[in-house]
Design a protein around this nucleic acid. Structure first.
Lengths: 186, 186
DNA sequence: TGGGTCATGTAACCTGTTACATGATTAG
DNA sequence: CTAATCATGTAACAGGTTACATGACCCA
């Protein structure tokens, strides 16, 4: 998966490992966290597979860099990954795992828990207005508005997800408060 | 994480690896996929850490089984994991990674793509009514309605997620159709 | 006699995380 | 002088996936 993300970026144009890392950190972070160490490791694999080539470039005043380019077979691989609709998202939510076992704690504790959760567990902690700001790095690279549309779609997803999460937390809080009232009415 | 999920189940009562696998497959699958092989491997680690004990039980007419029980230190570990609100959900959506690079395909293709996506990429492919059915195995174990509430919250999340995903796909389709109309009006 | 359930795992591999390591230039 | 930016990675470990392996009993 990360392999194909990197391939997708290189398909827009040549980049260094450092630039790839920056784009992941600033513009793709809302749907994919990638560690620098993992990016450099995958880059080695991509070269071994013949999907990218590396050109060493000397710079003055800056450290040397390795510029990466996608190859023909790399483009084919990217295309076949895009066309494959059978790859499934692994389902794994640490948040829901904890909620599942929250029965161990009291209703009072859990009401407070969900209040904190709706503030903490968000894709864009700084709010949806700030979401657009994360694009800066990405926009430097892509000025095709049609391609930027799909980037915007992923931001929209994050904004809707955050709204849904807050709604869900509110629902949970309401149900717990109803329970609390039932118990104290005796 | 899986370690603590297993610990949480064993906190309800003794189980075999086989039963843990069944509960994961039938009742926790909407927020956590766990392979049988991984469960048995984690079980070995949990025993090494002293969080569970294993009792070999012979059966007649059925293969022998290893019954697992949580220990005192296991309960402490579970509690401190529940109380720790700093563990962060890794963000990783294969679906959004593909959407991000969909600019490579035509608007027509992508409208169809989002139509298929809203049917395919769901937590509960059989619909929200069927969601409640997955509980069967879990309910066999837990008849405390207060604990079952938190299980229901995770189901609610899945239902709301699916609704949000359909809405998001519809929005994307609308934006793409508007673009298509603009282009054909020339 | 063939498939489903009960019941256990191992081995190899792939992917992600954490911690560490280096070193030059530039702007405040 | 110090912090940030540019630029590269390695090593060890943790966690997840895929494929394989075994075997008895029960029901149709």
């Amino acid at each position: 998966m990360l392999k194909h993300g990197i391939l997708g970026l290189l398909n827009y144009g040549d980049m260094t490992g450092y630039e790839i890392r920056t784009v992941f950190r600033d513009s793709l972070n809302h749907f994919w966290h990638a560690q620098t160490s993992q990016i450099y490791r995958e880059l080695q694999v991509l070269e071994q597979k013949g999907w990218i080539t590396v050109t060493h470039v000397e710079q003055n005043g800056k450290p040397d860099k390795n510029v990466l380019s996608i190859t023909g077979t790399g483009r084919e691989e990217l295309k076949s990954w895009l066309d494959d609709e059978t790859t499934v998202n692994p389902v794994r939510s640490a948040m829901l795992m904890k909620v599942f076992f929250r029965g161990e704690c009291s209703i009072y504790e859990n009401i407070e828990y969900f209040k904190r959760l709706s503030k903490r567990e968000t894709v864009f902690p700084t709010g949806s207005e700030a979401a657009g700001e994360v694009s800066s790095e990405y926009k430097k690279m892509i000025d095709d508005p049609l391609k930027a549309l799909y980037w915007k779609f992923t931001i929209d997803f994050g904004v809707m997800y955050d709204r849904m999460l807050r709604e869900w937390c509110d629902n949970c809080i309401h149900e717990l408060e109803d329970l609390k009232d039932e118990n104290t009415s005796y």
